[in-house]
Design a protein around this nucleic acid. Structure first.
Lengths: 234, 234
DNA sequence: TTACAAACTTGATTCTAATCAAGGTGGCCA
DNA sequence: TGGCCACCTTGATTAGAATCAAGTTTGTAA
């Protein structure tokens, strides 16, 4: 395994003690319950670009992001890369392998320097039986993820690139609150991989949107949506 | 709601009492625990073609298939239908709405006359807290489903139709055990919707495979795979 | 058993997006 | 600050698959 690995918890190490208390799947527990979990957690750091786990590797831990950003991607049967999702603070991954396969099907890569908390399968299963509310949190997270994944499948199956891109931009705006401007959270290259197309096509379609007056592209991956309605009518 | 709905459990109604004991998410429990769950279950029947739930409808129940077959499909933003999965005896659905949205995102339709067991959200949550092992079963099922869904997204995003179809046929053979022959579990129309293509293209690609000597199409949706290796090299 | 509807096949055409190719731009490190 | 590398853009071409349009087959119900 890459990265620097060490036990944490009872050493009074500030950075680590907040690990459990910060993530949604645990922070609803009582203090002493959280402390119990903290005691079993391992902490690891990864540098930008390092692989956290890769497909085919046996898995026996849940990975929780303490700080930093991670991207999860898969390789298709023919070897092409497809971006699945991004994780940031509080998100977790590795769960597929924990509950079924025991082998990772995807790749996890640190996009910047990242701190990860690890819970071993055995410990996690103990906690799940002991504190059932943790399962409810994970079930909620899973069902959201499943919903997203199925929606994505449907879009890639039935919409053309233009529409997929427009919908994606609209979702970025949604998350932004009231502002009509946002920063693309990834390179266009990655966006292409995420939306199931090529960088060239992304480039062209964005240019088309701009020509049509639906959006305005600004420096530093900033995009201003000028006419959301028309964009969504594409 | 469609279908005929009635309480079951303590009436000694044979068909119903086995409802809980037959499904994987419950049948590992003690007899009296299963009996307790059975007491809260509602049973419903649907005729072929009836809609069990539809997108946008509020959801407050988990649906378990007691007998029959169900298909789950979604409509994309532009109104095209996409088949997501099939359920048969012992499978369950409706969970997305239970753990997060509370509104269905997909449609469930009975493909033949079907018996469904319903557990209300409130009851289910009680049981999940009381018997944590149920959560583990559902988590396992979710993670499998998530894995499938992400694999499907990746395939549709990165493989051409020919490859997707070949991979699908190969998976049918896998499930078949040692036989090199299987029956397509759905119409070609549905298969097209499932694989993110059109019936015409399915028809053509299967004809191509047959011409190339990789498969043989027989009456009644039967397909014999003659050369699996070459099929997978497509 | 016939008749009808749904499912399927095949052909011709069009369209979308991938691929190939060649610059351009910008960010970052030495 | 200069140079380099990764990212991005734009153009030309090709390929894959959708669409449109007839037929043909099949399953099913009267």
């Amino acid at each position: 395994m890459n990265g620097h690995n060490h036990k944490c918890g009872h050493e009074g190490h500030e950075g680590h003690s907040t690990c459990v208390s910060r993530v949604p799947i645990f922070n609803h527990l009582e203090d002493e319950q959280m402390a119990e979990i903290t005691g079993t957690i391992l902490s690891t750091t990864y540098k930008k670009g390092e692989i956290i786990y890769h497909a085919g590797e046996a898995s026996d831990s849940l990975y929780i992001v303490k700080s930093g950003r991670i991207k999860i991607y898969r390789l298709s049967e023919s070897g092409k890369e497809q971006l699945v999702r991004f994780l940031s603070t509080g998100d977790f991954t590795g769960e597929l392998a924990l509950f079924s396969d025991s082998v990772h099907e995807a790749y996890a890569e640190a996009m910047e320097n990242t701190e990860i908390c690890l819970i071993r399968r055995r410990d996690l299963q103990t906690f799940l039986m002991k504190y059932p509310s943790i399962s409810l949190k994970i079930l909620t997270e899973f069902s959201n993820r499943l919903e997203n994944s199925e929606k994505q499948t449907t879009r890639v199956s039935t919409e053309k690139v233009e529409t997929r891109l427009a919908l994606y931009l609209a979702e970025c705006i949604d998350e932004e609150g009231s502002s009509m401007e946002f920063v693309l959270p990834m390179s266009k290259r990655d966006l292409a991989s995420f939306l199931g197309t090529t960088p060239e096509t992304i480039s062209r379609k964005l240019a088309d949107f701009e020509d049509a007056g639906y959006i305005r592209q600004k420096p530093q991956r900033k995009i201003e949506v000028v006419d959301l309605d028309k964009l969504l009518m594409v």
